[in-house]
Design a protein around this nucleic acid. Structure first.
Lengths: 133, 133
DNA sequence: CCTTACGTTGACGTAAACGTCAAGTACGAC
DNA sequence: GTCGTACTTGACGTTTACGTCAACGTAAGG
């Protein structure tokens, strides 16, 4: 799958931290918590594209207010999608549907919030035009 | 505004906690942090509909991963919308637009996530039909 | 009068998610 | 060789958002 052109880019801690907008401490912490498992070159960590992708997933989860535990559950599932065991795929699928339902609920919640916020903003604009004719 | 029919319902800590699905500790903590300021009947807290509404706003903020500080900022702004000072309305409006922009960004983020999740689910279903003909 | 239920404040505990040293290693530049 | 930079592990500190007693007051019911 990897053509000779794409040499499978890797990152050091500092590089990846910079690129993702986190600190190296965060990367090491996530590793200690088992969320990512970079390779090693001697003692130094070597992050692969897979690690990079997992990190982006994790950070997105965090933006949605998920705990690291929930984030781990999800990234692990993404990996498990290539599983060949029927039983495992079934439970995975069930969990994914739950998550999708949750996300849809959040969407609705967000929509309502956005409506409210823009309403309040509209009120503000109304009062402002009243005050300054 | 309050007709004789609606007697301005109030809540005790326990009642409100039950209704909102939080603990009394949470309500007292939010009060200590200045997020809500219930009246008192002697020593006992009496929560008004306003407190109830503020709490629902706060809890929604929390579901979106906001800190209590950010939540406070927002509920305070909702109150400030009735302000009559032009200067204050201006800054309030600016902040509201920022928040709206952020919410829209979250919406897009959420949409992408939902697409991904349903994609992975589709993969799962594909493999499952392969396995069980 | 005693229990039960609900309320109060205050103090301390805790889990999550990192931040912040400290002390040491490795490597290229000068 | 030593300077600067980036990496390592380990230990302890910190903030947030509550949980968990403890010790006490009060109003209702049997």
């Amino acid at each position: 799958m990897t053509s000779k052109a794409e040499v499978a880019r890797t990152w050091t801690v500092g590089e990846l931290a910079d690129e993702l907008g986190v600190t190296t401490r965060t990367l090491r912490f996530y590793e200690a918590e088992g969320l990512i498992t970079p390779q090693r070159a001697g003692a130094n960590r070597v992050y692969s594209q897979r690690d990079h992708a997992r990190m982006r997933l994790i950070l997105r989860g965090r933006r949605f207010g998920m705990t690291l535990g929930e984030c781990r559950e999800i990234v692990d599932m993404y990996d498990g999608a290539e599983s060949s065991e029927q039983r495992q795929l079934q439970t995975l699928l069930g969990r994914l549907d739950e998550i999708a339902a949750d996300l849809r609920a959040r969407q609705a919640d967000l929509r309502r919030t956005l409506v409210e916020v823009t309403d309040v903003a509209a009120q503000c604009r109304g009062r402002l035009t009243e005050l300054a004719p």
